[in-house]
Design a protein around this nucleic acid. Structure first.
Length: 301
RNA sequence: GGUCCUGUAGCUCAGUCGGUAGAGCACAGCACUGAAAAUGCUGGUGUCGGCAGUUCGAUUCUGCCUGGGACCA
C-alpha cells in the first residue's frame, strides 16, 4: 500500500505556507518545503521564508539546510524529501511551488548518480547552438525532437547525460512508469489573477520594508556573489545593477514585482499541465472549507 | 504673446518620398526529467491626438484646434 502524501501547490504569494500549517495541525503533519531558494540560510526575506512564529510549532523540513553558496537540484530534493517521507511517523505534507521538484519526488523520475563537478565537454562550449543541436540530433534524435535548438541549456544537458551515463536521456525516460510513487493529493491554492498580482506587488513592497536591501548587502558582505545559484533567485538578482550603481532602488523593486508576476504565470502553466491538481480559491472561505474536508476524507480513505 | 520641436501599441520610440504600421520592454499563451525563482518557444494587443482640405486613396501633405516640451519676450 502506497504511503499518502499531501501536496500544497500553487503560485507564489497565494498563501501556501499558511494553508500547509493549517492542514498539518489537522492531520498531525510534518511539512517538507518544496522550494528551491528557502533551503539556503540567510535568504529569508527575499525568498518569502516562513518565520518561526508562523510555523506554530509544526515541524518544517528542508529549510535552511544549505549554505548561501551551495548547489541544490531537483535530484537533491527528490532524495531528501523521499527520505523524510520514508522515516516520519507524521503525515507528510509537501509545500512548494517548484513544479519540477514536486514531480521528481512524487513520480517515478530516475536520476542516475552524478557528480556535480563534472562539467560539460569543453569542445561543446565552443560550438554554437545549431552545431550542438545537430550533434544531439545525431546521438539522441528522440530527445532532440523535444528540445528547441535555441534551448542551449537543455541540449547540453541531454548531451552530458549521454556522455556520462552511456545511455540516452530518452531511453532513461522511456524506462520510467510515469506514475506517482505515493498516494497523492495535490491541493492547488489559487485566486483571481488580478488579486494575486496585487498580492505579489504588496508582498514585494513589504519585503523592502522588512529590510531586503540589507539582507542582500549582508549576503554580499559574507561572500555571496550574483553568480551563485541562490543569488539568481527573484528578489536577489535584481539588485546587481543597483549595487553597481546602474539603477535606482525603486527600479529594483519594480523589477522584482514584474519578475514575480511572470514567475507566478509560469507556475500556473506548469501545474495546470504537469500535475493532477485539485484547484480551489483560497480567498473563498466556502471553497477552502470544502477543500479541507476533501483532504481529510482522502487522508482517512 | 512669438518662434521652433513634439503627439504612432500599456511604456520608450522607429517608420511610411501618399496604398491604414514595427522594434525592445510590458502583457498573453506554451514547453519543461539533475541550475526550474532557471532555460527556451509562440503571439500584435493600434481610431498612427481631433476636425476639415487636397487626392482614387491621408497615419504620411496642407490648414485650424488641442495636449506636451524648449527657447525668445
Amino acid at each position: 500500500m502506497m504511503k499518502k502524501v499531501l501536496v500544497i501547490a500553487g503560485p507564489t504569494a497565494a498563501g501556501k505556507s499558511e494553508f500547509a500549517v493549517e492542514m498539518a495541525k489537522k492531520l498531525d503533519g510534518i511539512i517538507i518545503s518544496g522550494d528551491s531558494i528557502q533551503v539556503y540560510r540567510g535568504f529569508d526575506i527575499g525568498s518569502g521564508k516562513i518565520t518561526k512564529d508562523e510555523m506554530q510549532g509544526v515541524d518544517h523540513e528542508l529549510i535552511d539546510i544549505l549554505g548561501p553558496r551551495d548547489h541544490y537540484s531537483a535530484a537533491d530534493f527528490q532524495k531528501m524529501a523521499r527520505a523524510i517521507i520514508a522515516q516520519t511517523d507524521q503525515f507528510p505534507i509537501i509545500c512548494g511551488g517548484t513544479g519540477l521538484y514536486l514531480k521528481a519526488c512524487l513520480y517515478d523520475y530516475d536520476f542516475p548518480e552524478e557528480n556535480h563537478e563534472e562539467t560539460v565537454d569543453p569542445a561543446w562550449e565552443q560550438m554554437d547552438n545549431d552545431a550542438l543541436y545537430a550533434l544531439l540530433l545525431q546521438k539522441d534524435p528522440v530527445q532532440a525532437e523535444k528540445i528547441h535548438p535555441h534551448n542551449r541549456r537543455r541540449v547540453l544537458r541531454a548531451l552530458t547525460i549521454l556522455a556520462h551515463q552511456g545511455q540516452t536521456m530518452s531511453s532513461l525516460e522511456a524506462a520510467q512508469s510515469h506514475e506517482p510513487v505515493y498516494d497523492i493529493w495535490i491541493a492547488g491554492c489559487t485566486m483571481d489573477r488580478e488579486k494575486l498580482y496585487a498580492r505579489i506587488n504588496a508582498r514585494v513592497e513589504k519585503m523592502f520594508a522588512m529590510g531586503l536591501e540589507q539582507e542582500v548587502k549582508d549576503l554580499l558582505q559574507s561572500g555571496s556573489t550574483f553568480c551563485d545559484q541562490a543569488m539568481q533567485g527573484i528578489g536577489y538578482r535584481e539588485f546587481e545593477p543597483y549595487i553597481k550603481g546602474e539603477c535606482t532602488l525603486d527600479e529594483v523593486k519594480t523589477q522584482i514585482q514584474t519578475h514575480s508576476r511572470q514567475f507566478a504565470k509560469r507556475q500556473y502553466t506548469w501545474l495546470r499541465h504537469q500535475l493532477p491538481v485539485h484547484w480551489f480559491d483560497i480567498t473563498d472561505p466556502k471553497e477552502k472549507q470544502k477543500m479541507v474536508e476533501e483532504i481529510i476524507d482522502w487522508s482517512r480513505s
